[in-house]
């Protein structure tokens, strides 16, 4: 077996293992899905009337529906951040138990354990996002996206989940205990709030707006928002999204791999 096919086979095995984990321990998946759904309900039905009226060009008529259309992409990215939490917790569980030392003492491709986590999380992420969108549709969301835009949106969100998961996996490995594994990924949950997730960045003070316009989640949210509305994505945010994704994948991968080599024995 060549090293590439061996890596692919081992990654597939680990991916199946992670899917089994989701079935056996559905609590984490349910939690990861419940949070964005609750936030969606909260922001639309509680804050939506007021926030929708404040949107540029927003009138008081149908403010809630207008805000629903505005906030769904932000909630989707909150979902991605939740997935990041799950990824960190999952890898921290592995690292604090002896199983990773076993994998490392076997002729298993070195990246396979991490690949399995990241791929499993991406699938979990897409499931979560599909449910959030489904709830949005039930609440009256009527996206303007055609089939091609939907397909692009799915691929784009999968890419974002994949990229953020790589960083989250590395963050989870820095944790000494499972309990502290979700500390760092909390940053991801904050970013949609400090970006265009819930209100346009144009309403923010200048210094915050600078940050919001460049940070990854604003780019992700704006691109998702355009795709969902059936518009061609804004070029600046589109490219910025791809750039951030590439940075997350490469940075997260290198960081996670180096931690994997160093940390999997210390636990005992």
């Amino acid at each position: 077996m060549t090293s590439f096919t061996a890596t692919a086979a081992d990654s597939g095995t680990m991916f199946r293992r992670n899917l089994l984990h989701m079935l056996r321990y559905p609590g984490l998946t349910v939690f990861v899905i419940a949070i964005p759904v609750l936030l969606l309900l909260l922001f639309v039905y509680v804050f939506g009337g007021t926030l929708g009226a404040g949107l540029p060009g927003g009138g008081s008529h149908g403010a809630i529906q207008e805000y629903l259309a505005y906030v769904v992409p932000g909630i989707l990215l909150i979902g991605v951040a939740g997935i990041a939490n799950g990824a960190s917790i999952g890898i921290a569980q592995d690292m604090t138990e002896g199983i990773v030392a076993r994998f490392r003492s076997m002729a298993v491709s070195r990246a396979a354990v991490l690949n399995g986590h990241v791929l499993g999380n991406t699938v979990q992420g897409l499931l979560c996002l599909a449910i959030v969108l489904g709830v949005g549709l039930l609440m009256g969301l009527r996206p303007g996206a055609g089939p091609l835009a939907w397909l692009t949106l799915v691929v784009f969100l999968a890419l974002v989940c994949f990229a953020v998961s790589w960083v989250a996996v590395a963050m989870g490995m820095t944790a000494k205990t499972v309990e502290s594994a979700s500390n760092w990924p909390m940053i991801f949950t904050l970013l949609p709030f400090l970006g265009s997730g819930f209100v346009p960045t144009s309403s923010m003070p200048g210094w915050l707006r600078q940050f919001a316009d460049w940070q990854p989640f604003t780019a992700f949210i704006e691109t998702a928002r355009d795709l969902l509305a059936g518009q061609a994505p804004d070029a600046r945010y589109g490219w910025l999204s791809l750039l951030w994704c590439a940075l997350f994948v490469v940075g997260g991968y290198v960081w996670a791999r180096s931690l994997y080599e160093r940390k999997s024995v210390g636990a005992s």
């Binding site: 138990e97 002896g98 076993r102």
Partner: peptide, 16 residues
């Protein structure tokens, strides 16, 4: 790695 097997002090099993 292809010729060894390791059983440590702590059961290295997947609890889920």
């Amino acid at each position: 790695r292809s010729v060894i097997g390791l059983t440590g002090q702590f059961a290295a099993v997947d609890n889920l």
